[in-house]
């Protein structure tokens, strides 16, 4: 279960847990330089921890939308060659800047992921993986807006938070609508419920349709 040298599963206090190699960031548990990826704080970590392939490999070029404080971004940067980290809010950006100062392969961008032209002059084409974790309305629109960055063999890892779309509609309906809308630009490969760690969230893995 340890496909790459940049991340592996280690036994810690009786349980097997995913870890990446790099300088610590958020007070996470470390063992011999290996940082445990906290599943409660990271939807991507939880999914990769289940052994699900999302297309994150050494050398990957990643566009991360909704980078927040950079906790998940830091783990992604331990594995990938370069991570473009887009975050709209200035408060978490301060933490993200600290993470980017300790990891040369993170490019922090204080930009609105809904308006891709404001960072298309920085983010390169042929991205291998888009990770999108934006807790705001119109999450699928953002995924479609950013499709142009992906290479033909690239992948999208999208988490939909139903409460962000509409607090009162049944999550099942929101997820179904999201998948229908996303299918106009992406081929959906897998969906996973994140209910055990992140309530009312759905993870979608997809590839772009060109």
């Amino acid at each position: 279960m340890a496909p790459y040298s940049n991340y592996k599963y280690i036994n810690f206090q009786g349980s097997i847990h995913l870890a990446t190699n790099g300088p610590p960031v958020y007070g996470e548990t470390t063992k011999d330089g290996w940082r445990f990826w906290d599943y409660h704080r990271s939807k991507l970590g939880y999914i990769i921890g289940q052994g699900i392939e999302v297309g994150l490999k050494p050398g990957s070029k990643v566009l991360y939308l909704g980078a927040a404080n950079g906790t998940t971004v830091s783990h992604v940067a331990d594995i990938a060659s370069i991570v473009y980290a887009v975050e709209i809010s200035p408060q978490p950006m301060r933490d993200l800047i600290n993470v980017a100062s300790s990891r040369k392969n993170i490019i922090p961008l204080l930009k609105d992921a809904r308006i891709s032209k404001t960072y298309s002059h920085v983010v390169e084409s042929n991205i291998d993986l888009i990770v999108q974790d934006v807790a705001a309305r119109g999450q699928v629109k953002i995924a479609l807006e950013n499709k142009k960055f992906l290479s033909a063999s690239g992948k999208l890892f999208l988490t939909i938070k139903s409460r962000s779309e509409n607090a009162t509609t049944n999550p099942k309906i929101i997820f179904k609508n999201a998948i229908d809308e996303l299918s106009t630009g992406y081929n959906i490969l897998e969906t996973h419920k994140l209910s055990s760690h992140h309530r009312d969230h759905l993870a979608i893995i997809a590839e772009p349709l060109f």
Binding site: S120, V122, E124
Partner: peptide, 14 residues
């Protein structure tokens, strides 16, 4: 340029 610039489509910048 990062702050104020823009571009319609991404390119292989590096």
């Amino acid at each position: 340029a990062i702050q104020e610039g823009s571009c319609n489509s991404p390119q292989p910048w590096p």
